[in-house]
Design a binder for these strands. Sequence first.
DNA 1: GTGAAAGCGCTAACAC
DNA 2: GTGTTAGCGCTTTCAC
Lengths: 362, 362
Amino acid sequence: MTSLGSIDDIENSGVAMAGIEDVARAAGVSTATVSRALNGNPHVSEPTRKRVADAAAALGYVVSSNASSLASGRTKNIGAVVPHLNRWFFSSVIEGAERALLRRGYDLTLYNLSGSGDERRTVFENHLLRKRVDAVIAVSLELTEAEVGRLIALGKPLVGVGGPLPGVRTLTIDDRAVAKLATDHLIALGHRRIAHIGGDKEFDLDFHIPTNRRMGYQQALDEAGIPLQPALFQTADFTIAGGYRAAKQLLGAPRDRPTAIFAASDEMAIGSILAARDLGLSVPRDISIAGVDDHELADFFQLTTVAQFPDRQGELAVEVLMQALEPAPTPDALPEHDASATIPVPYQLVVRNSTSRPLDTA
Amino acid sequence: MTSLGSIDDIENSGVAMAGIEDVARAAGVSTATVSRALNGNPHVSEPTRKRVADAAAALGYVVSSNASSLASGRTKNIGAVVPHLNRWFFSSVIEGAERALLRRGYDLTLYNLSGSGDERRTVFENHLLRKRVDAVIAVSLELTEAEVGRLIALGKPLVGVGGPLPGVRTLTIDDRAVAKLATDHLIALGHRRIAHIGGDKEFDLDFHIPTNRRMGYQQALDEAGIPLQPALFQTADFTIAGGYRAAKQLLGAPRDRPTAIFAASDEMAIGSILAARDLGLSVPRDISIAGVDDHELADFFQLTTVAQFPDRQGELAVEVLMQALEPAPTPDALPEHDASATIPVPYQLVVRNSTSRPLDTA
DNA sequence: GTGAAAGCGCTAACAC
DNA sequence: GTGTTAGCGCTTTCAC
């Protein structure tokens, strides 16, 4: 089983793994020069660089990241903490971040910080805080001030995605503006009885996302001179099942049924579509429904939504970190932000077939 | 920003990070003993062990994983390669593996090997193959023989999840048995016209999953003496949208419509349910539908399915690796398997409301 | 049961 | 532009 006789063996001819000294010998230079050449240090002549690169390739040399990290203090590894993995938003952010990191030769190690007890502390102390990662990306995770402070004291750059962290740069959509946009879309279509399905207060993964989206919704109504009606507000847990239940409440009312629903997430919006169907209502003829996310199922359900781009957010988070980790030659690559600012990320209204003019407006 | 005045400061009183020497001094022992005590080496007296542990705790000492790895050759980090992250199966496996690893003090570094070109090679050569990971978990990913061979030659344990890898221990459900079970369930209910939605041949992430499930389906029909009808077979891409389209084909037929559908995944089964509804058919009255997975949406759609437990599969994969990485005191902790065997994992029929007796049988 | 000391394989001063 | 060399912070023989 040791040799499968593949073409790869050619590169792997030596019995033991080649070290930097083997490369140095083969290239006729010192180990210092090998290190410099391979790390893109500018003070190496082009011919030397090439000789080293060739020798390294011929020997199948790859640096030992441990030795390198130990000597340099950099691990080329970043930690990502998430509260869950199998939800669309989180896994998309991680996918985007991972892609961006790989491109730069970094690794991504994943920490699922769901348990908030001892386990969380262990991860924090033993993994994140120490020499395993150069920086951390916190996805929709509320870190305590103490946690943030220790990371910063250790000089580890930290960036948040999906919600503001105290004193930390965070990438997030403007939840309020997003909600207002969706609601405005409904208002512009002629709707006046617009319900809202927000997030449960106890939904602890987020920051003030439910509140902010509700405020955007209210603001849109305000500006249109539409009075707020408590009966048109429900909360759920951001899932399809939750949205389904909430929408049943909203749509089952015998009178003064809303003509439109703005759900704070696509999954809840999809639940609403299914609830409407089960009640014999046609979407969008009897009821218009809009969400937020552009979830992978949004297209299938022809859902009008405000898209956010979590994978792009993950990539952006990496760019922010790289700015701190590897000061660019041109320091104005990205516009500078406050160390503790919220960095807005793009969003976009995607109109599909779940919204239209209300019937009684015709 | 350096001090947030939290209680954590108590533990972190020193300005610089405590090293093993600080602990040694505080405990009045040598660094060698500190190392031994902290790593559970049996040749340390109980009092000494306690003094060291206390000193370490008081100083907030945590080993530098790089230094430790460099000296010991073990990284306490395992690599997980996946073709995608934001699909239920993959993210669940990773979540399970991550949980099991954390418990043992290991990290999980994630590699998205979707690009199959140069990027893939880079990941392989520069990350997986070298001193960054002690072992690797390959989730539903077809590694080439050369790739597998090199990993093994380097002594890195490798375990697959979700599909057989050449010469590698792999955890996977018995796809054929699972499909047969689902189909048998339908047959037992009295169905004879049972359609199957399988996976596209081009669906390259898998191994022979579509084929194996189809064979299980056929075998069940065979044994029941039900002739196979090509018209009752469709393929799709394992998604809701794909299942929807395939089911429309199956159910739109003006005559000889199937009374049941066995879809090779829950997502396709859910798509089928939605297609049936759109065609005015009632599930399960007019059409019974069964899937495979027990996807998070299965319960909401009241889908009868054969559950597999991907998070458990991830945990199991970790256990298999640990057996190789950290030979247990009692070597019979887990039943021994062939180094290259397929390890079957549990599955279970979950009957909900999407299946019932066919109408014309009553 | 414990200590002394030799590396692990690199990188980064510092020379030249 | 390149070489010499001193560590990085641990683990692990080898003594005792």
